[in-house]
């Protein structure tokens, strides 16, 4: 990634770790519209951007966490989404004037969960996987306790924004594309982003180089929880209210999007463009298998096999790059 190696533009492109997710997304999209003989090609893409948006929001936070190095992962994302969504919807109670308050409340939930997570990891020295998993039970129980399964409609302004389209693309997706652009700069151009990568590659070396490892980790876990809270807020606005199981499928997907997007599971290497490619790929993959009309068992097996294939191909290309 240093760019010092002489190579043709095409050769450099082929070495980009995010390329494979995008190629995978393109391939399954083409397979889908080949099956339907071109019917609904555009609509499928719009739907992919609509739902990919939510994957990308949580995956950005998860990517920074995973990049911190082996063992770093945030398993409290689904519970945080649910808590933020339910608390915000309950507080706003459908009132447009409360929109800012609701958003702040959601982010407040995220902030609290993030600080609590890192407290468990740092002060009690609990491994991140266990710490975030156990805090997710507390958070999910809090969500159940605060709203007892109530589904409160979002304020009309939020619902309109979350479902609005600009020139065929969902407005929310455009915002999240911009957000991904900002986070790309944060990752590659700011001291914080470089510190995350340095800590992921070697925390001791990073410390000797003057990186505040604790602060970097703290900010990263809080950031992941904030993105989860933001996603819960937007998703509740989009799907007409918060539900207690709204975050369920974002646990594995948030990790899958990060890994398929070409971020190293071992930490130290990350990229943002791959997140969008992987989010589109995952949605289009399920859509393709649904369109083919295959049974649930075969669908799940194929989903697993195709994801493994993409990771293996992307992994072997990045080994070539490093080697």
């Amino acid at each position: 990634m240093t760019g010092s190696r002489p190579a043709s533009a095409l050769g450099r492109l082929a070495l980009q770790p995010w390329l494979w997710a995008w190629l995978g997304a393109l391939a399954v999209w083409l397979a889908t519209i080949a099956f339907t003989r071109g019917q609904g090609a555009g609509e499928v893409l719009t739907a992919a951007f609509t739902f990919g948006t939510f994957f990308v929001i949580v995956a950005i936070g998860q990517m920074f966490v995973v990049t911190l190095g082996p063992g770093n992962v945030d398993l409290s994302i689904p519970a945080t989404m649910t808590l933020a969504g339910t608390v915000a919807m309950k507080l706003m109670d459908g009132d447009n004037g409360m929109l800012a308050v609701g958003l702040l409340a959601a982010l407040g939930c995220g902030l609290a969960v993030g600080v609590f997570n890192y407290g468990l990891i740092r002060l009690l020295a609990i491994p991140p996987i266990i710490a975030t998993l156990s805090s997710s039970f507390l958070v999910q129980s809090t969500a159940i306790w605060t709203n007892r399964g109530l589904r409160i409609k979002p304020p009309s302004a939020l619902a309109d924004f979350a479902t609005a389209k600009l020139g065929g693309l969902p407005a929310l997706a455009l915002c999240v594309i911009a957000l991904a652009g900002v986070m790309h700069i944060v990752l590659t151009r700011t001291p914080y982003g470089r510190a995350v990568i340095a800590v992921g590659q070697n925390p001791r070396a990073a410390r000797f180089a003057g990186v505040d490892v604790d602060r970097t980790r703290f900010v990263t876990y809080v950031q992941a929880a904030l993105f989860a809270a933001l996603c819960g807020f937007c998703l509740a606005g989009f799907s007409g209210g918060a539900a207690l199981n709204m975050g369920e499928e974002y646990l594995l997907s948030s990790i899958a999007v990060v890994v398929i997007g070409g971020t190293s599971v071992a930490g130290g290497f990350a990229n943002v463009p791959g997140l969008w490619g992987a989010a589109l790929f995952l949605f289009l993959l399920v859509t393709m298998l649904n369109t083919f009309g295959l049974g649930a068992g075969i669908r799940l097996i194929l989903t697993g096999l195709i994801i493994i294939a993409v990771i293996v191909i992307a992994g072997s290309s990045s080994r070539k790059r490093e080697g």
């Binding site: 739907a47 739902f51 399920v286």
Partner: peptide, 11 residues
């Protein structure tokens, strides 16, 4: 359900 239906509807 919303996500799954939105995906298959165009086809």
């Amino acid at each position: 359900a919303q996500k799954a239906v939105a995906g298959i509807l165009p086809s």
